[in-house]
Design a protein around this nucleic acid. Structure first.
Lengths: 184, 184
DNA sequence: GCGTTAAAGCAAATATTTTGCGTTAGAGGA
DNA sequence: TCCTCTAACGCAAAATATTTGCTTTAACGC
């Protein structure tokens, strides 16, 4: 039911997808979540509701798709000069973004979705970013290097767990501690 | 919007709540998720849809409420004779349950809900169970003992992270490794 | 250009959600 | 025990949202 990346970015499909995604993002800032509806999004995007239902199936899946897309990193990871610094900068930014109200909403949208697919996209993106950070550390000659899996389990997992279950308990100190413990 | 524990278990409110929860649990095994609707639940529970809408607000919130309730442990934690054994038994059972299709559904229902409240209930329950396990270890004289927070970050967090993002990658070996590393 | 076809539009048929108002069950007091 | 008060429920009409069959459009490959 979910659209594969369009083969040609200029096609009609791609145009509709962009318009709909854009409409969701805009409206999400204008109306409270329980007022967001498929007909509303459709009107803003200039398409008919049935187009959205046929393509995404439901509002829930559409929101998950948009959220997963927004979670794809657009900015390259900052290079602070050390593995620990890079991790702190990158995970810190992620934490910052995800503790905000729209961030919490995005998280709920992805985690609440029925299809694993969207979540796997997010995981892939995180793995990719971490791999980049690790490669830079390797180039610097830092050693010993942890694996991506290690970083996920030691840093991203506790971070994500708290983002869902106790976001107010999160702090940079927490994060720094997980990073330090994982690199040890 | 969510019902506080009924003051009197015999009252009408409590009866309706039980009937509705029961209906959700039964129907969840009978019909595919996208066919589950408020009117359907209402009919099975013998109440009118408006009762459910007035009390829970939406199907999503009702499902989150039911899921959170199901995540409250009903069986006491097994006593295997050691902290490591108890953790493995308890977390293993949780992992087992949550990798199943209904388990994945419950997880999505709670994590996808708008209200933190339900997730906090689950966190409280996990903390309580872990505290129980720790108290037993303390009584046995095992030392040094980790904190509940440590166990959450080291074991439950990676477990939960993978349950959401890569459930197929989970194994007892993984779990055993997290437990061993956390107790070290 | 020209046929082919996947995706979009349109509108009617269903289904769900909301709402106003009457009814009922049960708590608390005389 | 009975009476009163009120929160929660039932009912049914109105408003919205969703599904569906059929038509139209636009982009791909020839």
């Amino acid at each position: 039911m979910v659209e594969k990346p369009a083969v040609r970015p200029g096609g009609r499909s791609a145009r509709v997808q962009r318009a709909v995604h854009e409409a969701v993002k805009t409206l999400d800032e204008e109306v409270p979540r329980d007022k967001l509806s498929v007909p509303l999004v459709a009107e803003r995007a200039g398409v008919t509701p049935s187009t959205i239902y046929r393509r995404w199936g439901s509002l829930k899946e559409l929101l998950a798709d948009v959220a997963a897309e927004r979670l794809q990193p657009d900015a390259p990871v900052a290079d602070t000069g050390s593995l620990e610094g890079d991790l702190m900068a990158w995970a810190g930014e992620y934490m910052e973004e995800m503790t905000s109200t729209p961030g919490q909403q995005m998280l709920a949208d992805t985690l609440g979705s029925t299809s694993l697919e969207q979540r796997q996209r997010c995981l892939k993106a995180q793995q990719h970013q971490l791999q980049l950070i690790l490669s830079r550390a390797e180039a610097r000659g830092e050693t010993p290097l942890p694996t991506v899996e290690h970083l996920l389990d030691g840093i991203m997992a506790p971070l994500t767990y708290r983002l869902s279950y106790a976001p107010q308990s999160l702090s940079n100190a927490n994060l720094a501690q997980w990073i330090a413990a994982t690199l040890r």
